[in-house]
Amino acid sequence: MTTEMMTILLVDDEERLLETTKKLFEKMNIQVFTAQSGQQALNMVETHGVDVIFLDVKMPGFDGMQTLREIKRINPLAEVIILTGHATMEDAVEGLKLGAMDFLIKPLSMKEMLKKAEEAFEKVKRHSVLLQSMKKD
């Protein structure tokens, strides 16, 4: 699952946003999955190996924070970046506590998104190498 190719999961209730962003990442040869709800996102995480997840916390249905907790349970190595339209201090603190790598506020430029994704991917790679070496011992 952790190859040189980065796999991203976008979770947001805005369909158009998912579509366009997916196209953009794919043009950069990054594999992208999308999910419109927390439940969908968890299914994706379970069935596909994803490295980086952009997660909106304000969504109808399954709460963003709950989704984050579940993702971390299913795949602790995956890095989650919270991307939300409305930031409250409480949400930010809770998100970071639950293990999110960052807490970003919309609107975010493509460049920044890519940068954050790459940073996250580096971290994922580092962690998996560390994990591999520990397994060998």
Binding site: R16, T20, K58, S109
Partner: peptide, 14 residues
């Protein structure tokens, strides 16, 4: 805020 930032994000990606 939520409602304005969401379309702004879409615009950026467009």
């Amino acid at each position: 805020a939520h409602e304005i930032n969401n379309p702004l994000q879409i615009m950026k990606s467009e």
